[in-house]
């Protein structure tokens, strides 16, 4: 049972015009087995929240706390956070030329477990996970994200989610750029991870479409760097019908 607590989180970034405050006091608690959807208009700070949890150096935490099972996440380096059980499925995964998917996945698994996976078992797990995600077997010979289509990148992110077995996963707009078939495949992967490892999920999305396939327990509406409203799945349905206009007007 894992708990990720975000308390009063304030985050800023350096811009040419100086420091810009993006998150203005975010409070959120995610537990194992729970699925939270964070929804909001573009520029509301959703991705900043994701990257701040993962520890991207671009984001400066000016106030607040992030705790994983009571441990201070903000004091951990990026790799320590991953080893503590956090996972970020990225919206724009970068290319790593000359590093094969197979080498990358095995290196990551070894780093997370503290020892190399048993070869036969690993090959079996990898093959099964790839079949489930409808990925060709020669995929592992390709260089990480190099020349991947949008759909392949997202499948690759979810493949990692299934193989690396984190406690809490943050999915940053995993649905963007996917057609319905790919969206279904990717969603199935997330649902499998939820069932098999009791994963806690923080799903960041602009659209309600993915929520048809991955059912949220909680929905949080993000506006101007903080949570403007929260509720159950019914809130997502309301957003589907009404959009974000209501919040933006209130905010202005």
């Amino acid at each position: 049972m894992a708990t990720l607590e975000i308390k009063n989180l304030h985050v800023s970034v350096d811009t040419d015009q100086g420091k810009k405050q993006i998150l203005r006091g975010v409070d959120l608690v995610i537990k194992s087995g729970e699925t939270h959807a964070v929804m909001g208009p573009n520029g509301s700070g959703k991705s900043t929240l994701a990257y701040s949890i993962a520890g991207h150096p671009k984001y400066e935490i000016t106030d607040g706390e992030i705790l994983l099972d009571g441990e201070n996440v903000l004091e951990m380096s990026v790799d320590e956070r991953a080893r503590a059980g956090l996972f970020l499925a990225m919206q724009y995964p970068v290319e790593v030329p000359g590093v094969s998917v197979s080498n990358f996945l095995r290196t990551a698994k070894t780093a997370l477990d503290g020892e190399a996976p048993k070869l036969r078992e690993w090959v079996g797990d990898l093959k099964k996970a790839m079949t489930n995600l409808r990925m060709d077997s020669d995929f592992t010979e390709r260089n990480v994200n190099e020349g991947f289509s949008g759909g392949e990148k997202k499948r690759h992110e979810i493949l990692q989610l299934e193989l690396l077995k984190p406690k809490i996963a943050i999915l940053d707009e995993t649905d963007s750029g996917l057609d319905v078939d790919a969206l279904k495949v990717v969603s199935e992967g997330v649902n499998r991870a939820k069932e098999t490892t009791d994963l806690g999920v923080l799903m960041i999305t602009h659209y309600t479409r993915i929520l048809r396939y991955i059912k949220p327990d909680f929905v949080h509406v993000f506006v101007a760097g903080k949570i403007a409203e929260q509720g159950g799945p019914e809130l997502a349905e309301r957003l589907e019908a009404e959009g974000y206009d209501r919040y933006i007007k209130t905010d202005a």
Binding site: A54, G55, H56, P57, S77, V78, D79, R81, A82, R83, F87, L88, M90, P93, V94, E95, V96, V99, N103, F104, T107, A108, A111, L112, V144, Q160, L164
Partner: peptide, 18 residues
Amino acid sequence: QLFYLMARGISESEAKRL
């Protein structure tokens, strides 16, 4: 690139080697 690799648990030195 370093961030991506480290976000998967790979240490900074190992990530640089890769």
